[in-house]
């Protein structure tokens, strides 16, 4: 994973897809995220790591405003995607979420057929003019998610009938079908066995050529395997952010070092 020359990586990650400035998140009276500043590069994988309850998932959910669905949650500060403030009152979260897809911890296929699962996003957004186009979107999404060979003969079967790993790839395919620019992944492998995990990680690595991917993970090995940049969160604070190999080999902060070396977490 680290075999790309430094300069090449630096060059490719130079511009900014998502920029967060002084982001604060409150759950009722709890101050869950404090003063987070981060720039996320396009078409790369950024991993958020940190001990449980450090706020990494909460911050991830700010990026497509999923926190809006929680009544007591309040977000302050500024988050821009392509220079556009996503918390601007003019921005409809529906529009934002079509651009910023999300994959969850537990695979959550709808209780519908595999085909309808994938076709759901394109249908509600009106992305296909006719059945042929929709078929095309479904098959290409399944292909991109590496699920086509396993699923092509059972498109009419319920998505819940697939195995755990297949379900998670179905959910990724479902997110891809809407043609987003960013895909957020909230511990996408925590409910999967090692073989399924390996497949999903492989998929993430392929997807980064076309999408900006932000992944929250518990596993430092996973972060090291799939990400180019890594951000370490602790107690709601972004402690350190940088190239993945730097974070893992030469952390600047004592807390990062302690976490990486397994002293806590």
């Amino acid at each position: 994973m680290f075999d790309t020359p430094h300069s090449a990586i630096d060059e490719r990650l130079s511009d900014t897809k998502i920029a967060a400035k002084k982001v604060q998140v409150f759950y009722g009276d709890t101050h869950a995220i404090k003063d987070v500043d981060i720039n996320i590069q396009p078409r790369s994988v950024t991993a958020f790591i940190g001990p449980s309850g450090c706020g990494k998932s909460t911050f991830l959910r700010c990026l497509n405003r999923m926190n809006d669905t929680i009544d007591i949650c309040r977000v302050e500060g500024e988050i821009t995607i392509d220079g556009e403030d996503i918390y601007d009152p003019k921005v409809d979260p529906v529009q934002l979420r079509a651009k910023v897809g999300m994959v969850f911890q537990k695979p959550n296929p709808f209780p519908k057929s595999i085909y309808d699962n994938i076709a759901y996003g394109p249908r509600i957004h009106g992305l296909a003019k006719n059945k042929a186009e929709l078929d095309e979107i479904v098959s290409s999404s399944l292909q991109k998610a590496g699920l086509w060979n396993e699923a092509k003969d059972r498109l009419d079967e319920p998505g819940t009938g697939l195995s755990g790993g297949q379900q998670q790839r179905l959910c990724i395919a479902r997110a891809i079908a809407v043609n987003p620019e960013v895909i957020l992944m909230d511990e996408p492998c925590s409910a999967l066995d090692p073989i399924a995990t390996a497949k999903v990680e492989e998929l993430i690595d392929e997807l980064r050529t076309n999408y900006t991917i932000v992944i929250v993970t518990h596993s430092m090995q996973q972060a090291a395997r799939v990400s180019q940049r890594t951000a370490f969160f602790h107690l709601g604070i972004l402690v350190e952010e940088g190239l993945t190999q730097d974070i893992f080999t030469n952390p600047q902060d004592k807390r990062t070092q302690d976490y990486i070396t397994g002293r806590f977490g």
């Binding site: 497509n64 999923m66 669905t69 979260p93 529906v94 529009q95 934002l96 979420r97 079509a98 651009k99 897809g101 999300m102 969850f104 537990k106 959550n108 296929p109 709808f110 209780p111 759901y120 996003g121 509600i124 957004h125 959910c171 479902r174 997110a175 809407v178 957020l184």
Partner: peptide, 12 residues
């Protein structure tokens, strides 16, 4: 999770 899944796809 089903609600979240639909909302994350951009469903109203």
């Amino acid at each position: 999770s089903l609600r979240d899944g639909a909302l994350a796809l951009g469903a109203t």
